[in-house]
């Protein structure tokens, strides 16, 4: 390879041939015609594509329907410290199971999706939206609860496969919970009945004696 057995200049010409092939090919060869005219055409992003997180809500109300229970797992695990959660309190001052404030600073978020990965409630997911350029830094760069909340329908639209899996999983969990509750109630009822039976069989209850 180190010694060339050809006329000087041939190597250059061969290189020019490649450049020429690329130049003319870029007019017709689809393999070389790669430009996507961005604002008019867009690349079709794959389903897993991620940029910034959003919060999923079920139903119709973007506040009441939030899946987030303010457990703060994502806040603790966020590597860039971009998440801030303030837990809501009910009228008695006890912590309630929803966030009062939920803020994600997209000026610090690095889109690593660890929040979505660790969330035990499938409440936070990754959006693929990337058009966030803004002239200011404080308000547009901090996404608050209302801006973060997006419906489950939206989630299904951007990530159909993943959202279907999540829905099936949540449905299963709900079913299991329901089942467990039913069993518990059944057991309680049985116990009550047994106690009533025992009380009937033994009319002289201790309070009489």
């Amino acid at each position: 390879m180190r010694k060339l057995k050809q006329l000087p200049g041939v190597g250059l010409l061969k290189g020019m041939l490649v450049t020429g092939r690329n130049f003319f090919g870029s007019y017709r060869n689809p393999r070389r015609l790669v430009t996507v005219s961005y604002p008019e055409q867009r690349l079709l992003l794959p389903e897993s594509s991620r940029n910034f997180p959003f919060l999923v809500y079920d139903g119709n109300d973007s506040v009441e329907g939030l899946r987030c229970v303010a457990c703060k797992t994502c806040e603790r695990e966020c590597p860039s410290g971009a998440i801030r959660i303030v837990q809501a309190r009910d009228e008695n001052g006890r912590p309630a199971k929803h966030p009062e404030r939920f803020e994600i600073g997209i000026d610090a978020c690095m889109g690593c999706q660890i929040c979505a990965e660790v969330c035990p409630f499938d409440a936070i997911k990754m959006d693929s939206d990337y058009e966030h350029a803004a002239t200011g830094r404080t308000r547009p760069m901090v996404h608050n609860k209302l801006r973060l909340a997006k419906s489950n329908t939206y989630y299904h639209r951007i990530k159909p496969r993943e959202a279907a899996e999540v829905d099936a999983r949540l449905e299963m969990e709900r079913f299991r919970k329901e089942e467990a509750r039913r069993k518990r109630e059944e057991a309680a009822r049985m116990k009550k009945e047994a106690a009533a039976k025992a009380a009937a069989a033994k009319p002289e209850a201790p309070e009489n004696s």
């Binding site: 867009r42 690095m110 350029a133 760069m141």
Partner: peptide, 14 residues
């Protein structure tokens, strides 16, 4: 300001 880490090339175009 263009947020992202890193922003996609389209985000820069935007």
């Amino acid at each position: 300001y263009i947020p992202g880490c890193p922003p996609r090339p389209e985000a820069l175009l935007h």
